[in-house]
């Protein structure tokens, strides 16, 4: 982020190291910096300790591990930035997969089957958005309700079993590689990058930040709050369904129980990546870093042979340490200045 020096900075200092120091200071100020630094540290540490971290297979495995979640992260980031959240993503994830699988089993062509799954996600998200804005039920209850409805619907569609017997051409997205890279990983990164650019640059997406930053101010600035929120939850639903469809493509079966607990994992990743539960703050790429961070810790615990019975405990401790450290360093950076000279 470039520094826009509006006020003349004292120009007397012609210290050569100044630009470098400035650059580093700016870099440290970037919200994701601490997280990326921790990720690099952990990765290097694991490589030094085990010698098996930077292998193609391991990196692939880690990336595949967070790919479907990464697709959901885009939607969740929008929901969090708008000042809400979406607890229904785990269930919509399952529902999207189940609907697409059912369609495929009914010999509906693959693109249409995928469209069917996405439509259900859209419907779930749209319903969330309408309930939150028009009926004014808070996002927690609304999406919690949708969590139950979508899960119930997946069970209803499947009568509780997994759906298999899908056409092998459908597995292209989740299993095949392009230029030695899994398609799933390519799709996930594509969505994250596009999502991040949209959130940073697109004027329509900028409105989400205004709404989450100060709803009343946004309203008075001529932003249609309801429309923004409806769009946010609708997109969250679509991306959750898309992730579910990709997951079916990877695992070859649609499981109505898939994605249980996914909502909390995603919210945690986004918060670790810099989203604020108060809204108005957060980036898509930050959410991805959050996912990578959590994935790395999981991976690292197994590589370091932490006994299985201790893994959840260790995970919790590491997470709190990381977030605590990050929060403290943010507070330190954002200390209010004692006096603003004018």
């Amino acid at each position: 982020m470039a520094s826009e020096s509006v006020k003349k900075v004292s120009a007397q200092k012609n210290n050569m190291a100044r630009p470098l120091i400035n650059f580093l200071t700016q870099l440290v100020k970037v919200r994701e910096f601490a997280l990326v630094a921790m990720i690099i540290l952990i990765a290097v540490g694991l490589e030094l300790y085990t010698g098996r971290f930077f292998t193609t297979v391991n990196l692939n495995a880690i990336s595949l591990g967070f790919s479907t979640s990464a697709v959901i992260v885009f939607g969740m980031t929008m929901a969090l930035v708008s000042g809400g959240f979406d607890l229904s993503v785990g269930s919509v994830f399952a529902l999207g997969g189940v609907v697409t699988a059912s369609a495929l089993r009914a010999d509906i062509p693959i693109p249409l089957a995928i469209l069917a799954g996405l439509s259900v996600g859209l419907l779930a998200g749209l319903t969330n958005g309408l309930l939150i804005t028009k009926v004014k039920i808070n996002p927690f209850i609304t999406t919690l309700g949708m969590m139950g409805i979508a899960r119930g619907a997946s069970l209803a569609v499947t009568k509780g079993t997994t759906l298999a017997g899908l056409p092998p051409e459908f597995f292209v997205y989740g299993q095949n590689k392009t230029f030695d890279l899994f398609n799933l990983i390519i799709i996930a990164f594509f969505i994250i990058i596009v999502g991040d650019v949209l959130m940073r640059r697109a004027s329509a997406f900028r409105q989400i930040y205004y709404v989450g930053g100060n709803e009343e101010a946004a309203r008075l600035s001529g932003i249609n709050i309801d429309r923004v929120k409806i769009a946010v939850y609708t997109m969250s639903g679509i991306f959750a369904a898309l992730a579910g469809i990709l997951s079916v493509s990877r695992f070859t079966v649609a499981d109505p129980g898939a994605g249980t607990g996914e909502e909390l994992r995603i919210i945690a990743a986004c918060i670790i990546g810099g989203c604020s539960l108060q809204g108005g703050r957060g980036t898509v790429i930050g959410g991805l870093f959050g996912l990578i961070f959590v994935g790395l810790i999981n991976n690292g615990m197994i590589l370091l042979r932490v006994p299985v019975y201790w893994q959840q405990l260790s995970m919790g401790i590491v997470l709190l340490l990381a977030v605590g450290f990050d929060t403290l360093s943010q507070r330190w950076q954002l200390r209010p200045r004692v006096r603003q000279s004018s």
Binding site: N58, A61, L64, T68, F251, G257, A258, G295, N299, L303
Partner: peptide, 22 residues
């Protein structure tokens, strides 16, 4: 040699992948 899959396919895949590395 136990991997905790937390009742999901995703965790089974990530966990076993890591164990196969270790």
């Amino acid at each position: 040699f136990i991997v905790d899959n937390q009742n999901t396919s995703e965790q089974a895949a990530s966990g076993l992948s890591a164990l196969l590395q270790a």
